[in-house]
């Protein structure tokens, strides 16, 4: 049928015209030519009136299908052109994200490295069921020494070089040399049992060098309850070691001496650099000394009116700065107090 043939031609003519089109404006013009007034499709529809009535529906449907097909050709072409246009715009808007990255000024500061170490340690102990207690940095002789089983002139007092203050009787008021006076204060609350860690700043009259600062931070633990034994102490140290330093790092205790604990021990942990295999950091022993611990001396409990026959306990303590130094391999501790942006931005 002639009409059929020309309809097919109209479709292929439109398809051919569209395939060569590269702009949306041209596409609109072409669409008008192929579908608008005076287009062949419009003419075919006008001619429909002259078609015999019984053929008219079939013929009409045919024309409509053709028209729809041509419209589809244009719709799809427009979609393609629009997408191509968008892609071009995007391409021209490309950015080197690292330019932004490199230009960015840091907007966040940082907590002090030692403070972050302290927070981590606190968190470990809080998870183990401890409260965190703090005490004053200026103490009396009684809290810093005497209540800790060091009567005046006790030889063990020589273990700490003390900064004394010009207050009261000579050498009676001092900057605390350890966090242990806080133990005494915790026990003075008279609330038992006690499961507490006591972090804080301490002072010793050492000339600053790579491994010593006259001002440093300690964290101390104290447990006093009924039935607490050395086995609990050893187990607690081991649990802490695993929780803080990670799986595979273990602890061991060796006899030592502190006036306020007995039996006393040093506790060592596997060197975190070589994980116990032996390296320079640990002098090839696989162990690094971390701190001291022991069973609370009955004299300390008696000093704060706790019955040592009914209650027993343990205490442990170690340097927070030393922990940070170990973990970050800081060669010279003095950098921790220099507040140098170049260091603070690093870690």
């Amino acid at each position: 049928m002639a009409v059929d043939g020309s309809l097919e031609e109209m479709l292929s003519a439109a398809t051919a015209a569209v395939s060569g089109c590269s702009s949306l404006d041209e596409l609109a013009r072409l669409q008008n030519r192929h579908l608008g007034k005076g287009s062949q499709v419009a003419e075919a529809r006008a001619e429909l009136r002259s078609v015999a009535a019984e053929e008219r529906p079939a013929q009409g449907a045919l024309i409509e299908r053709t028209r729809a097909a041509i419209e589809e050709v244009f719709r799809s072409a427009r979609e393609h052109l629009e997408e191509a246009d968008r892609q071009r715009r995007l391409a021209s808007d490309a950015a080197d994200l690292t330019e932004i990255l490199e230009a960015a000024v840091p907007s966040l500061g940082r907590a002090h490295l030692v403070q972050r170490t302290r927070d981590e340690l606190e968190d470990v102990f809080v998870a183990m069921g401890y409260e965190v207690v703090e005490g004053p940095e200026v103490e009396t002789d009684w809290y810093n020494f005497e209540a800790l089983n060091m009567p005046p002139a006790h030889p063990a007092r020589g273990m700490w070089d003390t900064f004394y203050l010009k207050l009261g009787e000579p050498n009676s008021i001092m900057l605390r040399t350890h966090t242990s006076p806080t133990q005494v204060r915790v026990l003075q609350r008279g609330e038992l049992p006690v499961y507490a860690v006591m972090p804080g700043r301490c002072y010793r009259r050492d000339t600053p060098d790579a491994r010593h600062l006259p001002v440093f931070h300690q964290i101390e633990g104290l447990v006093v309850d009924e039935g607490i034994s050395f086995a609990d102490l050893a187990g607690t140290i081991e649990e802490f070691t695993g929780a803080y330093f990670g799986e595979g790092i273990h602890s061991r205790l060796r006899p030592s001496y502190f006036p306020f604990t007995e039996p006393s021990a040093e506790f060592e942990v596997n060197c975190t650099i070589c994980r116990g295999a032996g390296c320079r950091t640990c002098s090839h022993t696989g162990w690094v000394e971390l701190g001291g611990c022991g069973m609370v001396h009955p004299a300390v409990l008696e000093a704060v009116d706790v019955d040592p026959e009914r209650f027993t306990g343990f205490a442990f303590g170690f340097g927070i700065d030393r922990c940070a130094q170990m973990r970050h391999e800081i060669a010279d501790m003095r950098v921790l107090v220099e507040n140098d942006y170049r260091f603070m931005r690093q870690l």
């Binding site: 606190e122 102990f125 809080v126 998870a127 183990m128 069921g129 401890y130 409260e131 965190v132 049992p193 499961y195 447990v223 607490i228 034994s229 050395f230 086995a231 609990d232 050893a234 187990g235 607690t236 081991e238 649990e239 061991r252 205790l253 060796r254 006899p255 039996p263 021990a265």
Partner: peptide, 19 residues
């Protein structure tokens, strides 16, 4: 010998926490 003494895991009866 400290290493011979058994270790026990201690479980405080109260929850820990910050003030």
């Amino acid at each position: 010998g400290y290493s011979v003494i058994a270790r026990r895991t201690l479980r405080p009866s109260r929850a820990g926490g910050l003030s």
